[in-house]
Design a protein around this nucleic acid. Structure first.
Length: 543
DNA sequence: ATAGGGTTAG
């Protein structure tokens, strides 16, 4: 039995400041009492680990007789510690002490606290470190938590852990999982999970269907998504707007405007009025698929019907007009947007600046560029790329290259598009040495070249008679699994023929036929080159 | 949730 701490107690009670000091209290409680009051001590320890930076080193030597490794003590501490990371740190400290056996109760309590704090990484760390089995309820909210944070793969792992324990998820968690996978574009996992869901015998609800439809759209399976929608509509279920919007966007991409308008009608009839998100996608894809005029008409119709386009819609429309080089119209919308009270943002500025650059109005572009900076928007890779692209389009590659060299000094990162823009610009001007130097530089920097990188290089090399180099670039491109654009192969054939190698030209041509990548516009030129080079008549028997 | 930068023929 411990000594009755009467003298110390009397001292402490008389000395208010000493009693306020947690160290003193602990020393009293741990050395002078046997039946340790865990509640009191843990409250004090909480204070210490919160305020004292190197408590791990001082705690044991300061209080040699207290048994910190009693699991009951840790459970008590957890109750009082608001900041779960302090508890975690304490837990790992305990684990390093001899004699502490993390018991399932404290592990589970800590795990639950971490999950509640949405500290998925820490929760995962704890799981991996201790290998304990959390109770199903915590594990289930852990799965929901992982999905929310975009950790789809980890969620699946946790799911199989639960499944192994014979527990099945509630529909809420299934939906959270599907939604989480959708957010990070992991449709592959969605289909696995959905299969599992069916096997568990959990009935999909209307929310589930919404996610499935969206997943089908992401997989470019819009028609299947549409069929699923029709099917559930018959059953009286109406998925949320997001599913409709994805379907509409998907059909726009496929230029299936009949379905688009049908879906818009369904939305209205089901009290899902199409919103800015819906229309923005329609206009976006109309512009991207070369129907900018229709896009503009739709945009104006919407305004006539009382819809108020938001800044994103305005930006989309301005961008569409700029791609068609209708800069005047774009500028009109720009001012209309400002009149309506929207301030141009980074996206709007970059779009408009590129528009001006493309038509060679560099003065206007520079004024806007300055305005953008004055408004506090930073210069970015995108804004630099836009200026460089404009300059390249107008034969001012030297100025573009000047910007390129300036970028690192301003701390602006160059990316693949930066390189591609310049490579294309130099190629266009026949500056093949500069282009290939940039290409080499790009590889040294560790970028993965894209089709946009190779195409201008191959074409220009062929034109200057360096067909061998062009062919090696072609192989390089193919080895990276990149698809060539229509027309690139034509240059190689014509280049080969210019060198008098009709036979190999023919080989390449037959290869194109086999792969059905013929660009019929150039076929006549190709056949003509081959026959000129080989002085033979090409008959379609070869085909 | 939504928007911005890189292919194409004289």
């Amino acid at each position: 039995m411990a000594r009755a701490p009467s003298s110390i107690l009397i001292f402490l009670l008389r000395n208010h400041r000493a009693w306020q000091n947690p160290n003193t209290q602990i020393r009293y409680l741990t050395t002078e009492t046997k039946d340790s009051d865990f509640t009191e001590i843990s409250q004090q320890i909480c204070k210490i680990i919160r305020t004292k930076p190197r408590w791990e080193q001082t705690l044991p030597s300061d209080y040699p007789s207290f048994n910190f490794t009693d699991p009951q003590f840790f459970t008590e501490l957890l109750k009082h510690q608001r900041n779960v990371f302090f508890s975690l740190r304490f837990f790992f400290w305990l684990s390093s002490q001899n004699g502490f056996l993390p018991n399932p109760v404290s592990c589970n309590a800590l795990f639950t606290a971490l999950v509640e704090a949405k500290a998925y990484n820490a929760a995962k760390l704890l799981l991996g470190h201790t290998g304990f089995s959390p109770d199903p309820a915590s594990l289930e909210s852990y799965i929901g938590c992982l999905c929310e944070g975009g950790y789809a793969q980890e969620a699946v792992d946790a799911f199989y852990r639960l499944k192994g324990a014979g527990v099945c998820l509630s529909i809420m968690t299934w939906n959270a999982a599907l939604s989480g996978c959708l957010k990070v574009g992991r449709t592959d996992i969605i289909w696995i999970l959905y299969q599992e869901m069916i096997e568990c015998g959990v009935a999909a609800d209307v929310e589930t269907v919404g996610y499935l439809i969206q997943a089908l759209c992401v997989d470019n399976n819009v028609l299947k998504g549409y069929e699923l929608l029709r099917q559930v509509l018959v059953d009286g279920l109406v998925p949320g707007k997001a599913a409709f919007n994805k379907l509409i966007s998907g059909f726009c991409k496929e230029k299936n405007y009949t379905r688009v308008s049908e879906l818009l009608h369904i939305m209205i009839s089901k009290n899902h009025d199409p919103d800015n998100y819906t229309y923005q996608e329609v206009i976006n894809w109309l512009c991207k698929k070369g129907k900018g005029r229709e896009g503009l008409r739709g945009f104006n119709d919407l305004k006539d019907r009382g819809y108020a386009p938001d800044i994103v819609m305005y930006t989309t429309m301005i961008h569409g007009l700029c791609t068609m080089d209708y800069i005047g119209e774009a500028r009109k919308l720009w001012f209309e947007m400002i009149e309506k009270g929207y301030r141009p943002n980074e996206y709007t500025y970059n779009t408009m600046i590129l528009g001006f650059c493309k038509i060679g109005s560099f003065e206007e572009a520079k004024i806007l560029y300055k305005e953008m900076c004055d408004r506090g928007y930073k210069e970015t890779t995108v804004s630099y790329n836009a200026m460089m692209r404009g300059l390249c389009l107008h034969g001012r590659t030297d100025e573009a290259y000047g910007l390129f060299t300036e970028m690192p000094h301003k701390g602006i990162v160059r990316d693949l598009i930066t390189y591609n823009t310049l490579i294309q610009g130099f190629c266009k001007e026949g500056k093949i040495v500069e282009s290939t130097n940039l290409f080499r530089d790009l590889l040294t920097q560790g970028f993965q070249p894209s089709t946009y990188t190779y195409t201008p290089l191959i074409e220009r090399l062929c034109q200057v008679g360096a067909v061998q180099e062009a062919k090696s670039l072609w192989n390089d491109m193919k080895n990276r699994g990149l698809e060539s654009t229509f027309g690139t192969q034509d240059y190689i054939i014509i280049g080969l023929c210019d060198q008098g190698d009709a036979a190999e030209g023919m080989e390449w041509f037959l290869d194109m036929l086999k792969r059905q990548v013929i660009h019929w516009k150039n076929t006549y030129v190709i056949l003509w080159s081959i026959s000129l080079a080989g002085r033979t008549t090409i008959s379609l028997k070869h085909v």
